[in-house]
Write a protein that binds this DNA or RNA. Structure first.
Lengths: 188, 188
DNA sequence: TTGACATACTCAACATGTTGAGTATACTTT
DNA sequence: AAAGTATACTCAACATGTTGAGTATGTCAA
């Protein structure tokens, strides 16, 4: 039910349309939560049925009408209840590590390619977060921004730890005994 | 389809029963992949239908019969195909960061409690991984172990980065402007 | 004027993951 | 002798996430 609560949290900050919420997921929340438009709209329907949010239809000049969603009193109660529940670390599912695990059965250059690919992705994300940090987080900000910064710091730490690991593994790989599995079919 | 390929990867290392595979997920893979028994058995059925694995029924003295699964030639082909595909970072979904994001609307001691709770979890996991590192990874190991160590290093890096972040945030929180939302219903 | 982009929302099918109950056997501990 | 633990597997319902198509309107630039 965590998606529901994430949407409630966004609506607690300020009312918004499904479109606005989707944008928030793409922008401010992207480093720790991703949700597609479809998920957001489906969830908003459910939340409306449960009475945790409601909406007013807002006609707009030059744009389609929008449904502006608000969190309700019941919704705030639910969010507060959720807030007191201890959270557990999210289960991770990393294919890359599965590839590393059987790396000794596969041609090593393939694994190194893959690691470099990931290294690139993580360094790009890191650069992006650092740019946001420099642009929006410098100097005195309001409380809302200060708390957003804490979440951004998590994104930075996450990408940094990936990058370091990639570098280390790429450096270590050539020194491990190579023993590709002769059983495996060769690539087309 | 990544669960399927993870199971194929385990069966490439050695044949095993559904039970064995579930145990592997709990033990060696736990720091980057979790799967329940139900998922494993369901997936093994699918893999069998697809011809990527097959099994022999092995009667055992003093234990129930088991189905010993093997990866097939087709399965190896599929695993190799998958191995060449670039992986993307797994989308993350972290409720804790959602809580931090709206932390300025909530009573601060509540958030600090939560952060300390997570700090404890991550330090326990870290200690666990370090123990495995000390016990099994020291000295000369075979290639298989060397590659497993690389994945363990990822687990260690991950938990370390969480721990550092928790500490930093706990230290920073008291210095941020506190402004709990008076609108929110008080807790029961 | 055509096409890309931003706003705004809906539907359907499918894949994947979670939760909980249920069926066995056998060994070990209390 | 009963309870707990480990081995070994199955079924069902539901929640959640993914993929892809479809419907609109209006702005801006090539």
């Amino acid at each position: 039910m965590a998606l529901a609560h994430t949407i409630l949290a966004l609506l607690l900050k300020r009312p918004g349309s499904g479109y606005d919420i989707t944008k928030s997921f793409d922008e401010e929340l992207s480093c720790y939560w991703k949700a597609t438009q479809q998920q957001v709209y489906r969830e908003l329907n459910k939340l409306t049925k449960q009475g945790w949010v409601n909406f007013e239809t807002v006609p707009q000049a030059g744009k389609p009408d929008k449904k502006l969603y608000h969190i309700t009193e019941t919704g705030k109660q639910e969010l507060t209840r959720w807030y007191t529940e201890p959270t557990e670390p999210t289960p991770i599912r990393e294919d890359l590590l599965v590839k590393v695990l059987i790396g000794y059965k596969m041609p090593q250059p393939m694994l190194i390619e893959e690691l470099k690919h990931r290294q690139k992705i993580h360094s790009e994300l890191l650069a992006e977060y650092r740019a946001i940090e420099a642009k929006h987080m410098a100097g005195n900000q309001d409380v809302e921004m200060q708390f957003m910064y804490l979440t951004l710091k998590r994104g930075i730490a996450y990408e940094t730890s990936w990058l370091t690991w990639c570098e280390e593994v790429i450096a270590m790989l050539p020194h491990l005994t190579e023993k590709p599995d002769k059983d495996l079919p060769s690539l087309p």
